[in-house]
Amino acid sequence: MKQVIRLAHGNGGKLTQELIRNVFFPCFNNSFLAPLSDSAVFKLNGTEVAFTTDSYVIKPIFFPGGDIGKLSVSGTVNDLAVMGAKPLFISCSLIIEEGLPLSTLKKIIWSIQETAIKSGVKVITGDTKVVEKGSGDSIFINTAGIGVVSSEIKLGFDRIEVGDRIIISGTIGDHSIAVLSQREELGFGESVSSDCAPLYELVEKLKPYWKDIKFMRDPTRGGIAGILNEIVQGRNFGIELWEREIPLKEETMAICELLGIDPLYLANEGKIIFFVNEKNANEIVEVLRNHPLGEKANVVGEVVAGPPGKVYLETIIGTKRVLDMLVEDQLPRIC
């Protein structure tokens, strides 16, 4: 059968990984392309620079807690933040479907500017394309971002060791559930707001602990289960995740239960997963909890010797099972 691109190729799960490994990586192959990083890092006149890009196709474009504009800035600056880079500048390219009300566009653009100010970045270049009605879906946005990596922070898989603790900066799954609730056929109303937010502030607040942070990721598509699986694949360590410790809003949980969705696979747009020294894990959690973006931060797991390359979940009743990557899309177009 002829192979075609399916929605699941874009969900950050196994098929996305396959696409990167089999199509993109062999073609673009160069030393800056790290398949598992959110940004490329390179030296420019002695300064370490992080560079990233992301496209936003979320539907609906306005949702509780945010809109496509806020998301397109947050998502990109967060990809820089988790590389330990202070975001400085972003670009903004729009693909607009003919017929979009100008007032809607203005609302989105102001939202971009408001989020840029909050993130400490400036939008310094951009592009606009308009496609015929039916060739797009109201508006798609691409942003690219550039930031400077601090010399005080050293992140990398090679620093992760058995015994390290895994911290999540707050409740999981809220973004996906907020977006899903807006889809007309379900009608859950606005019970859950998206966590969509720029996060560099949170990283900066941890400055005294930068030496203890070994790795960071923002668990967007694929959720924390997807990200942890990506991290552990092919490594000589395993991960144990403690279901009981994972922060989850009651409203989010209720909707997940109703729909049979697992929040561990849901996208977040305002959360960071940290791998940190065991010794300072609790202090780091305390610092995070003192910031509004990290109020519900918690230690949710640890790096273990084995089985290597696998993520295990200690379930809420204390049993253990393998936690695999997402197979099929739970929800398309959530970012």
């Binding site: 084995g306 089985p307 696998k310 295990y312 253990k320 099972r321 393998v322 695999d324 197979v327």
Partner: peptide, 14 residues
């Protein structure tokens, strides 16, 4: 397939 491949169950029992 999703919640426990056979080889994993053996490993988990170790």
């Amino acid at each position: 397939y999703r919640f426990g491949h056979k080889e994993d169950k053996i490993e988990a029992g170790n």
